[in-house]
Simulated assay, not measured.
Amino acid sequence: MKYAYLIFRTDDDSEEDRRVMSSGTQTLADGQAPADFAAARLAQNRIHHSYYTGPRRISYWPHEPGTPLPRTAPATAQHIDG
């Protein structure tokens, strides 16, 4: 199953779409739990964006192939803070 994600800063009062650090889609491996996928993406984001040491959140949700990636997470998205 394919999941979309948005990783954004949570320490600032600006609009959510202005705080996005990373976004994309990924097909989960067979048997991979969505929360495990999200935690791994969040950890990878910390490495790739090590200049930013503040709090961040990943929002993730099932993504239908061929649909555009929204600029903000839908209300049905799951979240992990890290």
Rank of each mutant, 00 (worst) to 15 (best):
M1V: 15
M1G: 15
K2C: 13
Y3R: 04
A4R: 02
Y5A: 02
Y5E: 04
I7P: 00
I7H: 01
I7E: 01
T10G: 12
T10P: 04
T10F: 06
D12R: 05
D12S: 10
D12G: 03
D13W: 13
D13K: 10
E15Q: 08
E15W: 04
E16L: 07
E16A: 11
E16I: 03
E16N: 06
D17I: 05
D17T: 05
D17A: 06
R18M: 06
R19G: 02
R19Q: 09
R19T: 02
V20A: 02
M21F: 04
S22L: 14
S22N: 12
S23N: 11
S23H: 11
G24R: 04
T25I: 14
T25N: 11
T25G: 08
T25K: 07
T25Q: 14
Q26M: 13
Q26I: 10
Q26P: 04
T27R: 12
T27P: 08
A29S: 15
D30S: 13
D30T: 14
G31L: 13
G31S: 12
G31P: 06
Q32H: 12
Q32K: 10
Q32C: 14
A33M: 15
A33C: 15
P34E: 12
P34N: 11
A35C: 09
F37E: 03
A38K: 02
A38M: 09
A39I: 03
A40E: 08
R41N: 01
R41C: 01
R41F: 00
L42G: 02
Q44M: 08
Q44A: 09
Q44N: 09
N45F: 01
N45W: 00
N45I: 01
N45R: 03
N45A: 14
R46G: 00
R46Y: 00
I47N: 03
H49L: 05
H49Y: 07
H49R: 05
S50D: 10
S50N: 11
Y51G: 05
Y52P: 01
T53P: 00
G54L: 09
G54V: 04
P55W: 08
R56Q: 07
R57E: 09
I58K: 01
S59L: 04
S59H: 06
S59D: 11
S59A: 15
Y60Q: 02
Y60V: 06
P62S: 09
P62C: 10
E64R: 10
P65R: 10
P65T: 10
G66Q: 12
T67S: 12
T67V: 11
T67Q: 13
L69G: 06
R71H: 10
T72F: 09
T72A: 10
T72E: 14
A73N: 06
A73R: 01
P74V: 09
P74K: 08
A75G: 13
A75W: 05
A77F: 07
H79F: 11
D81M: 08
G82R: 00
G82W: 00
G82L: 00
